[in-house]
Amino acid sequence: MPPLTNADDMNRQPRIALIHATRVAIDPIETAAKALWPEAETISILEEGLSVDRQKTRELSGDMLRRIVDLTRYAEASEADGVLFTCSAFGAAIDRANAEACIPVMKPNEAMFDAAFGHGGRVAMIYTFPPAAAGMEEEFRDAAKERGSDAEITSYFCDGALEAKRAGDDARHNLLIAQTARTIEGADIILLAQFSMAGAADEVRKFTSVPVLTSPETALAEIRRRIETNQ
Rank of each mutant, 00 (worst) to 15 (best):
P2E: 03
P3M: 13
N6D: 12
D8A: 07
D9E: 10
D9R: 04
N11R: 13
N11I: 03
Q13D: 05
P14Q: 02
I19G: 06
H20K: 10
R23G: 06
A25D: 06
A25S: 07
I26W: 14
A33S: 09
K34D: 05
P38T: 04
E39Q: 07
I43S: 05
E48G: 06
G49I: 01
T57V: 10
G62V: 12
L65H: 11
R67K: 06
E76D: 04
V83N: 00
L84C: 15
F85Y: 12
F85M: 09
C87N: 09
E100I: 03
P104T: 05
E110M: 02
A116D: 06
A116F: 12
H119I: 11
R122Q: 12
M125L: 05
M125F: 05
A134P: 04
M136I: 11
M136F: 14
F140G: 03
E146D: 03
R147A: 14
G148S: 07
G148M: 08
E152D: 09
I153Q: 02
I153K: 01
T154Y: 06
S155N: 00
S155P: 00
F157G: 01
C158R: 02
C158L: 05
D159I: 00
L162D: 07
A164H: 09
R166K: 12
G168Y: 00
L175P: 07
I177S: 01
I177E: 04
A181G: 03
R182M: 11
I184F: 02
E185L: 11
L191Q: 00
A193M: 14
F195E: 02
S196R: 01
A200C: 14
E203I: 15
E203V: 15
V204E: 12
S209M: 13
S209R: 14
P211F: 12
P211G: 10
P216M: 01
E222F: 03
R224E: 07
I227R: 00
T229I: 05
T229S: 10
